[in-house]
């Protein structure tokens, strides 16, 4: 297991949060695209995504244990359950809120469904997707602290051990890097967003 390796808690934490985030992106964006074409899937995805939002994070972490046990992978699952929602919801909203006239003109030009997604819907959804991914990254970062309770290791272990042993230094050595990572995530996503989102698409959604 990864958590058995001699990684520093910071690296453990980052691996944990980012693996979960990448899987969430890899699952969430295709699911949102599929939801465009199936009303049933759309209802299912959006309802379950919203439901997950309503469940307290601690409960999400706890519910994973009886289902798949403890350790790194169950922790990943718990983080994904949290991070998926903003990605799916924002992607779906971004993809489906494109001006119908623009879709109509793309169809009229002879673009296929996939080409419409690729060249019209996705670029128009970038700002929304970015906002969703950024929010998901910050969520993943904080859930990855909590998952130390179910044996994920990482910075959370330092925080919990510090709390249990009333060891302020130990607790802060876990909490401060986590805060630092959150700030770094926020800044780097904002930077990427400025780089990647085309300038006129942006004003459309803000």
């Amino acid at each position: 297991m990864v958590s058995d390796l001699l990684l520093t808690p910071i690296i453990q934490h980052i691996v944990l949060a980012y693996t979960a985030l990448l899987v969430s992106i890899a699952l969430g964006i295709p699911l949102a695209i599929l939801a465009l074409y199936s009303r049933n899937l759309q209802t299912f995805v959006m309802t379950s995504a919203n439901l997950m939002q309503a469940v307290p994070t601690l409960a999400v972490v706890a519910i994973v244990v009886p289902l798949i046990g403890i350790g790194f992978w169950p922790a990943i699952v718990a983080i994904i359950l949290r991070a998926l929602l903003p990605i799916i919801r924002n992607t779906w909203i971004g993809l489906s809120s494109v001006d119908p006239a623009i879709i109509a003109s793309a169809e009229g030009l002879g673009l296929s469904e996939w080409e419409i997604i690729r060249y019209v819907r996705l670029p128009n959804a970038y700002p929304a997707i970015f906002a969703g991914v950024k929010f998901a990254a910050i969520l993943a970062n904080s859930v990855a602290i909590l998952t130390a309770m179910i044996g994920s290791g990482g910075l959370g272990s330092l925080v919990f051990e510090g709390l249990a042993g009333v060891n302020m230094m130990k607790m802060l050595s876990g909490a401060l890097p986590a805060i630092g990572i959150a700030l770094f995530l926020d800044a780097s996503f904002s930077w990427m967003e400025r780089r990647m989102v085309p300038r006129s698409g942006q004003s459309e959604l803000e």
Partner: peptide, 18 residues
């Protein structure tokens, strides 16, 4: 068929991000 027929729709519909 549509790639071989030009079509200007009622609302123009230029792609705003391009």
């Amino acid at each position: 068929l549509r790639k071989n027929i030009g079509y200007v729709i009622q609302q123009i519909g230029l792609f705003p991000h391009m």
